[in-house]
Amino acid sequence: MFRPLAVVLLLVSTEPAAAAGLDAASINDAAPPSVKLPGPHQVNASVARLEIMLDRAHFSPGEIDGKLGENARKAMIAFAGANGLSFDKAVTADLWSKLAASSDGAAIVNYTIAEADVKGPFLEKLPPKMESMKDLPALGYRSPREALAEKFHMSEELLQALNPGQKFDKAGDTIAVANVLDAGNPAPVARVEVDKTRQTLSTFDAAGKLVAFYPATVGSAEKPTPSGTLKVTAINKNPTYRYNPDYKFKGVKSKRPFTIKPGPNNPVGSMWINLSAEGYGIHGTPDPAKVSKAESHGCVRLTNWDAGRVAAGLAKGTPVTFVESAR
């Protein structure tokens, strides 16, 4: 368990996300942040590089957006604690060096858009209500830009800022993206721990070592996540979502069950890890920016890519323990 601590970072750039000065070079050459705390809505080259290194080390900051948000802070605290490093009011040289050592290659790299990235089909509009989704043939991405941003664990705004004027709809074009695809999956998971208070999910190996860490949305007031230890009973990629009217979710008026076709914009995203309590699971989301910032219907919500990484290390029977840490 890790105690939240204050973080002080250097403001490398005070410009907004679309600033011309924010490019691959400014992120790849960014120095360790220290001294001054950037605002939570300011995009920062050092923070972007830090987020990418954390993602590659399997200490996920959630959506990589270049902002020093709550999820990036959680990941830094967890990484420092797991590596026995001092972490108080600054990102120390030791912490930065340890992250850099676990992350080969540049933070931002070039990528050539493939035919599959722009093939679609894409949704013209994502309905805001579940009932309106049930008749759609699939819950795909809304645009090539959304698909590419998710592929590289980025916010659409940061992807666009790094590629000004790019429409992301032409195969063969070269774009700048976060270097996260070759990070691989973490070690096999012997145990999962979900912290209901801190809104995080951690995985441990057979020796009890923390091997990966993720921000999460855990439950809601209307349907709290269960306590105690459950087990993984099934892992389903690209799941069909089945709504049970007994759940009585807020905003859903249907009194009959219905299903929603698979796709990354499905209510449970592109991955469902079923748990041994009926109706509960660990899953993805159509809105990665809201992970740990909006309520879930009782389940554990991760970004689609983090849910995929967690699933890759699990097997049926893996224990998932829900805890409530001290604030």
Rank of each mutant, 00 (worst) to 15 (best):
F2I: 10
L5V: 15
A6R: 09
V7R: 08
V7D: 07
L9Q: 08
A18P: 01
A19I: 10
G21V: 13
L22E: 03
D23G: 09
S26K: 03
D29N: 13
D29S: 12
A31Q: 12
A31W: 04
S34T: 13
V35S: 08
P38C: 04
G39I: 09
H41G: 12
Q42K: 04
N44A: 08
N44V: 04
R49M: 05
L50I: 10
E51S: 13
I52G: 05
L54F: 09
R56I: 05
S60D: 02
G62F: 06
L68F: 15
G69E: 04
E70R: 10
N71P: 01
A75T: 01
M76W: 10
M76G: 04
A80R: 08
A80P: 10
G81H: 07
N83R: 05
S86I: 04
K89V: 11
A90V: 06
W96G: 07
L99Q: 08
L99F: 01
A106T: 06
I108A: 03
Y111C: 14
T112D: 01
T112S: 06
A116T: 10
F122Y: 14
L123Y: 14
L126T: 11
P128D: 14
E131F: 04
S132A: 15
P137W: 00
L139N: 05
P144M: 13
P144W: 14
R145C: 03
A149S: 14
H153Q: 13
E156I: 03
E156S: 06
A161M: 11
K170G: 02
K170L: 10
A171H: 01
A171G: 06
D173F: 11
T174H: 03
T174L: 03
I175Y: 09
I175C: 05
A176Y: 08
V177T: 02
D182W: 09
D182N: 12
A183E: 03
G184R: 11
N185D: 13
P186G: 00
P186S: 03
V192W: 00
V192T: 03
V194R: 02
D195C: 09
T197Q: 09
R198K: 06
T200D: 02
T200W: 01
T200K: 02
T203Q: 00
D205L: 05
A206L: 01
A206I: 11
Y214P: 09
S227G: 11
L230P: 09
V232H: 13
T233C: 08
P239Q: 15
P239F: 15
P239W: 15
T240M: 04
Y241I: 07
R242N: 02
R242P: 00
Y243A: 03
N244P: 03
D246F: 04
G251H: 08
V252T: 13
R256C: 07
P257Q: 03
K261I: 02
K261H: 10
N265A: 05
S270D: 15
M271D: 04
I273D: 05
G281I: 05
I282N: 02
H283I: 07
P286V: 06
P288S: 09
A289S: 11
S292I: 09
S292H: 13
A294Q: 15
E295T: 12
E295R: 10
H297T: 07
H297L: 07
V300C: 01
A307V: 12
L314Y: 02
K316L: 12
K316F: 06
T318G: 14
T321G: 05
E324P: 06
E324Q: 15
